[in-house]
């Protein structure tokens, strides 16, 4: 995936939309903040999710970082490679480190998502 073409949440998930399926991962910015990931909790296939609600977590020894679904819908796939090898999130956040796919509900809104430039600005603000 080319990070420039993706959309983002303020909670640092990236989203790639293909038809009615949204693929979700975490951004490089977020991946770099997570040292030594110990556990990735992914939503089960078939689980109903709604935009902005937590549906999983990435954990380090002393932190638990919730994952939020960027869109409404139902989980259609989860990347179990990442669950067994969390290092993929840091190595390749936009590729092999993807986390889950959501089959979007009809009419699910994408309007709240940021484009790459707006997200970059959001990160710059958060870093200060």
């Amino acid at each position: 995936m080319d990070p420039k073409t993706l959309r983002y949440t303020k909670t640092h998930e990236w989203v790639a939309v293909d038809g009615d399926v949204a693929t979700v991962g975490v951004s490089r910015f977020a991946a770099d903040l997570l040292n030594d990931i110990t556990f990735v909790g992914l939503p089960a296939t078939g689980k109903a999710v709604s935009a902005g609600k937590d549906c999983g977590a990435i954990e380090t020894v002393k932190s638990a970082n919730d994952l939020y679904s960027p869109v409404d819908g139902e989980i259609s796939a989860a990347n179990h490679e990442v669950a067994t090898n969390p290092g993929l999130i840091q190595e390749d956040p936009y590729g092999q480190g993807w986390l889950f796919k959501v089959k979007m509900s009809p009419g699910a809104s994408l309007g709240h998502l940021l484009d790459a430039a707006a997200y970059e600005e959001h990160c710059a603000n958060e870093a200060h």
């Binding site: 556990f39 977590a57 020894v61 638990a64 919730d66």
Partner: peptide
């Protein structure tokens, strides 16, 4: 497995 506990997860 302390990420389950209150000092990290607080209300969750």
């Amino acid at each position: 497995l302390q990420t389950r506990e209150q000092h990290i997860r607080r209300d969750k």
